[in-house]
Design a protein around this nucleic acid. Structure first.
Length: 658
RNA sequence: GGGGUCGUAGUUCAGUUGGUUAGAACGCAUGCCUGUCACGCAUGAGGUCGCGAGUUCGAGUCUCGUCGGCCCCGCCA
C-alpha cells in the first residue's frame, strides 16, 4: 500500500514552497507578490490572506531555488528571523544539486561518527540527510541537538556517493553551512518513527509527537485531499454547502444526546446534532434542491474501533430524485475518493435486499470478501435422529450452517475456541462436523452415513469444516454471521474492496423493552409505496426506501427516501407511539414545514472517518482523527471531560448530583 | 450495563511454585570513532512493579476493590 499512498501524499509538485513564511514585519506583502506573478496565477487566493503563513504546494519543478529569493530586507535583521525556506526536506532531490538551500525540520536521528555527524532532518514531506563535517564552524553546538530538536539548516545540496534508496531524498544530502536551533526538545517519550511500537495510551498523551509520524502525516494529507475532492465533486454536481446549527434540540429517538445547557433559559438545553437530519430536510423544503455538508455529528454512545463520540459525515440531500439516481452519484464520488489511493473501483455496486443479506450472511453489513455464506441445514438435520436437534426443531428452531473451506484440520482446541466465541455472543453452542482420515466426526451424535449424505448432497469438500448452529432463526443467523466473520479473517485483504448497497430495510422493528414499534432508520424514512397498505395490518412487514452503503463489512453510509406527505408523517409518528404532545413539541416545526409544499426528497450520509480508515488501510478510525477519544470517551491529551467551576455551574443553574 | 485482555525502567517487554539485591533490548548520559543511514564500541545512570486494601513469616507473583489502555456484546433513530 506504500505506492499509492506516496502518490496521494507528496507528489513531485508538492515539495516546492511557493509561498514564504514571513514574520510580522514592515515588508509589504504586495512586494513579494509582484516579484512572483506566476505564483499568483497558480494560487489566486494566496495573496489575499492576512495570515503570515502562506505555505502552499504545487509549483513547477526545475527552477533554481536561489534565483527566486528576493534578498532579505536589512530591516528584519534586528529580530532573530527565520531564513527563507524554499524546499521541504522530503522534496529535495537531484534537481537541487549544486544550489545552497535552507530547510526546516525536526531531528529524526543523529549519527555521530567522530569527525562527521549525520542528521536526518524531518518535515511533513519526509527526511533529508544533513552532513556536518569538519567544514562546519561550530561543531560544539552539535551536543545541543537531540531528537526532535527543531532546526533551520542551510547548506549546499550534493549528490551522495552512496545513495539511500529508502529515502525520497536519498540521492542527495545537504552539507551544513549553518544550523540554527529554533527549538530544543526534551527527550521525547517515544520517537514518531516508532509510534507503532508504543501503546495508544502514550500516543494519545503526546498526540502532537505521534502526529509527526510520516504515516500519520500521510493520513491527514489524504483526509484533506479527500475532503476537497468531495467538495469539488459535489459542487460540480450542483450540491450547495449549507451549514446547519450545532446548537439544536435533543431528539426523543436515536442515540443519547450531548446536551449543552442554556445560560439564558435555565433548565433548558440545547443538544449537539446527532446528524443534521431535520435541517437538511428543511433545506429541501426551502428549495435548495441539492445540499451537502461535511460536518461533525455527536452521539453519546459507547466507542469502538470504528466509532467516536464526535465524527464527521458527508451529509447529502436532494429533491425530485429517486434512490437509483442518488446511488449513481455516490458511487462515482466513492470511486473518485478511492482513486486517491490508486484503487480502481468498479461501478455499479452490488445491491442486496436486507432480508437476503441476513439470510445469506447473517448481517446487514456483510463482508463480501469472505467467500462462504450461511446455508440452511434444517431439513437435513431433521433426519439425523438427534434428540437435541429434534427438540429444537420442534420448537421452531432452524439449523444454520457454515462450510469453512480447508478448515477440516482444525484442532480440538480451535473447535473449542469457536464454541466459546459463540457462547460469549449468547449462543447455546456450535456443532461441528468434519471428515477425518478414519471417517466422519462430529461434536454431536450423528450417524456417519448421515454426515456422508450431507457432504454428498451439498457438495462439501472433504477437507471442509461444517459448523452448525441450532437456534431461533434470527439468533442462529446472527451467530452464524459472527462466526463467518471471525473465521474469515484470512480473507480480509485490505486491497480488495467489496462495495455493496443493502436495500429494502424494514421500516420498523419491535422494541421489546418498550413494547412498541421503533423506526429502523429514523422516523422520517418513507415506506415503499406498495407497502403502505401493510402499515395497518402488518407494520413489521413494511419495507422502507432505505439503504446502507457497505464496504468490506463496514457500514460507510446510510440514507433513505424521506416522507414529504404530512399525513403519512403524522401517521408514522403515531405508530411509533409518540405522545401527541411530544410530537408537537419536538417535531411541530417540522410537521408544519411539511404543510407548506415539501418536495419529494431523499438523502444519505457517508461516514467520512470510516471512509478514510478504509482508504488508508488503518484498523481504527482513531488513526484518521487528529485528536480522538479513548474507548472510555476520554481525551488523554487535554483531560476532557473535566470538572467546571462552581461559578460556571451557578451561572447555568446546574447542581451536580453526588 | 456485561465479557475478554493488558498495566513492571523514558519505551517495548521478560520475571519459574509466593522467597535474598526485579532483568533484557531500545532510549538516555559520558567517552572513543571521518561516510553513517536501526552507525559501531566502551562505561554509567535509571524502578512507589498503575493505585488501595487483604491473605502470608514473606507479594511484581495470590484475593478483593479501584483507575486507565485496547477488543467485543449491549447501545449506536
Amino acid at each position: 500500500m506504500a505506492g499509492p499512498c506516496r502518490a496521494a501524499g507528496a507528489g513531485p509538485a508538492q515539495g516546492r514552497l511557493p509561498g514564504i513564511r514571513r514574520l510580522p514585519g514592515p515588508e509589504p506583502q504586495e512586494t513579494v507578490q509582484e516579484s512572483r506573478p506566476h505564483r499568483r496565477r497558480l494560487h489566486p487566493g494566496a495573496g489575499r490572506g492576512r495570515g503570515r503563513e502562506r505555505l502552499g504546494v504545487g509549483q513547477e519543478h526545475g527552477q533554481p531555488a536561489a534565483e527566486q529569493n528576493p534578498s532579505q530586507g536589512p530591516e528584519r535583521m534586528a529580530e532573530k528571523k527565520l531564513l527563507k525556506r524554499q524546499w521541504y526536506c522530503g522534496a529535495v532531490g537531484e534537481a537541487q544539486v549544486g544550489s545552497t538551500i535552507t530547510v526546516y525540520g525536526w531531528v529524526n536521528t543523529k549519527r555521530e561518527l567522530g569527525g562527521v555527524t549525520f542528521i536526518d532532518l524531518r518535515d511533513r514531506e519526509g527526511l533529508l540527510q544533513i552532513v556536518v563535517n569538519e567544514a562546519f564552524a561550530e561543531p560544539g553546538r552539535l551536543k545541543e541537538i537531540g531528537k526532535e530538536t527543531v532546526l533551520a539548516v542551510s547548506g549546499r545540496v550534493v549528490k551522495r556517493a552512496r545513495p539511500n534508496p529508502e529515502l525520497a531524498s536519498g540521492q542527495v544530502e545537504v552539507i551544513a553551512e549553518s544550523i540554527d536551533i529554533l527549538a530544543a526538545s526534551a527527550v521525547p517519550p517515544f520517537v514518531p518513527e516508532n509510534h507503532a511500537g508504543v501503546s495508544e495510551e502514550l500516543r494519545f498523551k503526546h498526540r502532537y509527537i505521534d502526529l509527526r509520524n510520516l504515516d500519520m502525516q500521510r493520513n491527514f494529507k489524504l483526509r484533506s485531499k479527500a475532503n476537497l475532492l468531495a467538495r469539488n465533486f459535489l459542487d460540480r454536481e450542483g450540491f450547495l454547502d449549507i451549514e446547519t446549527p450545532m446548537l439544536t434540540n435533543a431528539t426523543p429517538e436515536g442515540a443519547r444526546d450531548y446536551l449543552v445547557p442554556s445560560r439564558i433559559y435555565k433548565g433548558r438545553m440545547f443538544a449537539l446534532p446527532q446528524s443534521p437530519q431535520q435541517f437538511k430536510q428543511l433545506l429541501m423544503v426551502s428549495g435548495f434542491e441539492r445540499y451537502y455538508q461535511i460536518t461533525r455529528c455527536f452521539r453519546d454512545e459507547d466507542l469502538r474501533a470504528d466509532r467516536q463520540p464526535e465524527f464527521t459525515q458527508i451529509d447529502i440531500e436532494m429533491s425530485f430524485a429517486e434512490s437509483h439516481e442518488l446511488f449513481v452519484i455516490i458511487e462515482r464520488l466513492v470511486r473518485d475518493l478511492f482513486a486517491l489511493r490508486g484503487f480502481e473501483v468498479v461501478l455499479p455496486f452490488r445491491r442486496l435486499p436486507y432480508q437476503e443479506a441476513l439470510a445469506t450472511y447473517g448481517s446487514d453489513k456483510p463482508d463480501l470478501r469472505i467467500p462462504y455464506t450461511i446455508k440452511d441445514f434444517s431439513a437435513d438435520a431433521a433426519a439425523w435422529g438427534s434428540e437435541l436437534l429434534n427438540a429444537a426443531l420442534a420448537q421452531g428452531a432452524k439449523v444454520k450452517g457454515l462450510v469453512i473451506p480447508a478448515a477440516g484440520s482444525f484442532s480440538r482446541k480451535q473447535l473449542d475456541e469457536i464454541n466459546d466465541a459463540a457462547r460469549k455472543l449468547g449462543g447455546k453452542g456450535v456443532i461441528w462436523m468434519k471428515k477425518a482420515e478414519d471417517g466422519f466426526k462430529s461434536s454431536l451424535k450423528v450417524p456417519p452415513a448421515a454426515m456422508a449424505a450431507l457432504f454428498e448432497k451439498h457438495k462439501i469438500a472433504s477437507d471442509a469444516l461444517v459448523l452448525l448452529i441450532a437456534d431461533a432463526e434470527p439468533q442462529a443467523l446472527f451467530l452464524a454471521g459472527k462466526l463467518r466473520e471471525l473465521l474469515g479473517k484470512e480473507f480480509q485483504d485490505k486491497k480488495k474492496l467489496e462495495f455493496l448497497w443493502v436495500t429494502d430495510f424494514p421500516l420498523f422493528f419491535y422494541n421489546e423493552e418498550e413494547k412498541r414499534l421503533d423506526s429502523n432508520h429514523h422516523p422520517f424514512t418513507a415506506p415503499r409505496p406498495e407497502d403502505i397498505p401493510l402499515l395497518a395490518s402488518e407494520p413489521l412487514q413494511v419495507k422502507a426506501i432505505a439503504y446502507d452503503l457497505v464496504l468490506n463489512g463496514i457500514e460507510i453510509g446510510g440514507g433513505s427516501q424521506r416522507i414529504h406527505d404530512i399525513a403519512l408523517q403524522k401517521r408514522i409518528f403515531q405508530m411509533l407511539n409518540l405522545a401527541e404532545g411530544e410530537i408537537e413539541e419536538k417535531f411541530g416545526f417540522f410537521l408544519s414545514a411539511l404543510t407548506f409544499g415539501a418536495p419529494p426528497h431523499l438523502g444519505i450520509a457517508l461516514g467520512f472517518d470510516r471512509l478514510l480508515m478504509l482508504l488508508t488501510g488503518e484498523e481504527s478510525i482513531r488513526e484518521v482523527i487528529a485528536f480522538p477519544k479513548t474507548t472510555s470517551s476520554l481525551c488523554l491529551l487535554t483531560g476532557s471531560p473535566s470538572a467546571v467551576s462552581q461559578r460556571q455551574l451557578d451561572e447555568l443553574g446546574i447542581a451536580i448530583k453526588k
